[in-house]
């Protein structure tokens, strides 16, 4: 007896991992930002909030454009970027060096970890007056506080990355004649690189915070100064320009670090 074809039961295999898919929803991303701005503008136009408290987005944009044209904004941004750059370079170079040393050498670990554990929880902002006392009111104290804020996340992340280096790969390097410093350069540092880049991301946030704080004391330029000064003379629109610039700085650094990550770590699957 032949089975009738109509009786044959067929089950179609479906992709059971479908609910794990995470589409990008690009439109939603843009709409969210636009929605916030529109709401903000509408609030202003409806007269719900006085302009002194919350200037309208268009007003902020116009003010920003004027400040850009007059060169005022660029002076502030330039001064801030310079402080950020110095602080970032010094802090991350020291942080990476200390992280590698503490992660790789037992003596450095014994000395370094308690020191870092004791100093890390201090809010760096509390050290600003001390740094000013030591280094004066000029640029060095500003740069130093940013460098200090960058140093800790960098040192701690680098240390963790170094500790995570695969002992098998280290042995493989030694099997092919690598000495201590070759192992550090060719195995330990590349292993730690993803953690180091993650440290840069953490540090970027801290640096921005400390920048603004440092620029509120005894400076004549910088985005932090702009915000504080505008607030003092109740120039709310200018103040908002400063805040938008800070937000843009944060977004840009995030994007830049993403690019850096892809350039530095091309071996990551899916990168």
């Amino acid at each position: 007896m032949k089975p009738r074809p109509t009786m044959t039961e067929r089950i179609h295999v479906v992709d059971g991992t479908r609910f794990l898919a995470r589409p990008e929803h690009r439109a939603l991303r843009v709409l969210g930002v636009i929605g916030l701005v529109v709401l903000w503008e509408a609030l202003g136009r409806a007269g719900a909030v006085p302009v002194l408290f919350l200037p309208s987005p268009l007003g902020v944009l116009r003010e920003g454009w004027d400040m850009l044209r007059s060169g005022e904004l660029l002076v502030h941004i330039g001064a801030s970027l310079q402080r950020l750059a110095w602080g970032f370079v010094i802090g991350s170079a020291l942080g990476i060096a200390v992280g590698v040393a503490v992660g790789f050498f037992a003596v450095a670990e014994a000395i370094g970890t308690p020191l870092i554990a004791a100093t890390f929880p201090i809010p760096k902002i509390a050290l600003l007056p001390l740094l000013i006392l030591w280094l004066g009111l000029g640029e060095p104290s500003k740069i130093a506080v940013i460098a200090l804020g960058v140093f800790f996340p960098m040192a701690i992340n680098t240390y963790a990355g170094v500790r995570q280096a695969d002992p098998l790969l280290i042995r493989a390097a030694v099997a092919f004649g690598a000495g201590r410093f070759s192992v550090i350069r060719k195995v330990v540092l590349p292993s730690a690189l993803p953690m180091i880049v993650a440290g840069l991301r953490l540090a970027a946030g801290t640096a921005l915070l400390l920048l603004v704080a440092a620029e509120m004391i005894a400076v004549e330029s910088g985005v932090g100064f702009l915000v504080l000064h505008a607030g003092n003379i109740m120039a709310t629109t200018k103040l908002m320009v400063g805040i938008v610039v800070l937000s843009l700085l944060g977004v840009l650094s995030h994007w830049g670090l993403g690019r850096l990550e892809r350039a530095l770590i091309p071996w990551r699957a899916g990168a």
């Binding site: 042995r171 493989a172 099997a175 195995v187 071996w267």
Partner: peptide, 11 residues
């Protein structure tokens, strides 16, 4: 040495 687990450098 040829390692059982290959031990290639991913980078």
């Amino acid at each position: 040495m040829v390692f059982q687990e290959f031990a290639l450098f991913p980078w």
